[in-house]
Amino acid sequence: MIPIHYYLILSAVMFITGVVGVLTRRNAIIIFMCIELMLNSVNLTFVAFSSYLGNATGQMFVFFVMAVAAAEAAVGLAIVIALFRNKQTVNINDVNILKW
């Protein structure tokens, strides 16, 4: 049988891949996709624990995370479109208005 460690390590690798993507890429859409990747790595952890513990709650969480991800996709992409409309770019280096 496959020990749970394997799933967890895969999840960690995927999560860090997402983190590295978020930290290094400048294209807002790719960053967005990296976030999706991170969400999925967490989902994997949930499902793995759910199966190994025999508790369906973990899969409930995956369900809700997906709902949130869908909502996030809708709003996030809307933001990207709005950003592009205003700045003609999705490069987040050009969007540093958090600094005032």
Binding site: V19, V22, L23, T24, I92, N93, N96, I97, L98, K99, W100
Partner: peptide, 14 residues
Amino acid sequence: AQSGVVQNYAALIV
């Protein structure tokens, strides 16, 4: 630290 670049803030979280 207050660069306004979101990635730096995310790096700090890391």
